[in-house]
């Protein structure tokens, strides 16, 4: 009797896998902490510094506002132009990487691979390379943002194109449309709203990115971080940060509202 009862209770699943995962994570963390020289003692030693910096950041130097307005407008201009360049270049890339537009795998796999490659390179690196080519100023920043947003917009758009309804495509083929008419009247109406929404989304990302591109000399408000932190003027730094946050939040809000209207 006793034995039967014991068999009724199911055995708890083995916890070995959990223990292994746990140990693996601990090892990873320990290795990473060792590699980066991160220790708690250093963090605690840094605490007084931290508070003195924060103390100097408050109150912000409001008078500095006048000096950075022009740079902030430049940042937004860079984001607008960079997004536009990206949006235009992204169209052919999106069409050539959608499997229902181009039937040949020899075309869309290489194009997709190229897009993946572009998206692995952080925009700040692109900006640093373009600064080396074109010299200091907003121009390299605009190009970096353009290439960076091409990757995002093209990827999202080609996924939207692959999800469209086949009906209009077939009927355009049936009435004998050429390739351009085929795209204009059966693909564009179906993906236009998505495309515009993705462009706005990448504009939001680009505004944030443009705010820091100045750190490598690619124009915009980022240059002022270098200037003020170099002289330890933390009150001015906090003015720049607050201004940036304000602009980003406002642009995010407008863009989100527009996107909600579109879709």
């Amino acid at each position: 009797m006793n034995q039967v009862n014991e068999q009724k209770i199911p055995k708890a699943p083995s916890k070995l896998k959990h223990y292994f995962t746990f140990i693996l994570i601990l090892l990873l963390l320990w290795g990473s902490a060792y590699q980066t020289d991160s220790t708690f003692s250093e963090l605690i030693e840094g605490f007084p510094n931290m508070f003195s910096v924060l103390d100097q950041m408050i109150p912000p130097n409001w008078a500095y506002f006048d000096n950075i307005i022009e740079a902030m407008l430049d940042t937004i201009r860079m984001a607008v132009l960079g997004t536009t360049i990206g949006a235009i270049i992204a169209i052919p890339f999106a069409i050539f990487s959608a499997s229902n537009m181009i039937k040949s795998t020899w075309v869309y796999y290489p194009v997709r691979f190229l897009l993946n490659l572009v998206r692995t390179i952080p925009e700040l690196l692109l900006a640093a390379i373009f600064v080396a080519i074109f010299g200091l100023g907003p121009l390299p920043g605009i190009f970096a943002l353009g290439i960076f947003s091409t990757g995002i917009i093209a990827k999202l758009t080609y996924e939207a194109i692959e999800g469209i309804d086949k009906g209009p495509l077939e009927s355009m083929t049936a009435v004998g449309a050429n390739k351009i008419q085929w795209i204009m009247f059966s693909v564009v109406p179906q993906v236009a709203a998505y495309y515009v929404s993705y462009v706005l989304y990448s504009f939001e990302i680009n505004v944030r990115a443009a705010a820091i591109l100045g750190l490598v000399g690619a124009g915009g408000i980022g240059e002022y971080y270098d200037r003020t932190l170099g002289f330890l003027e933390y009150d001015k730094v906090s003015t720049i940060i607050i201004f940036t946050l304000l602009v980003v939040l406002i642009i995010d809000y407008i863009s989100t509202k527009l996107r909600e209207n579109l879709l």
Binding site: T36, D37, S38, E42, E45, N49, V53, L215, I241
Partner: peptide, 26 residues
């Protein structure tokens, strides 16, 4: 608010606090 605060600027501030190096990045 935390999301919009650029991480590079945060790194710059941490460099002032714990000195340059990987720890500031972490």
């Amino acid at each position: 608010f935390v999301r919009t605060f650029p991480e590079l600027v945060m790194a710059l501030l941490f460099i002032k606090m714990v000195g340059p190096g990987s720890f500031a990045g972490v």
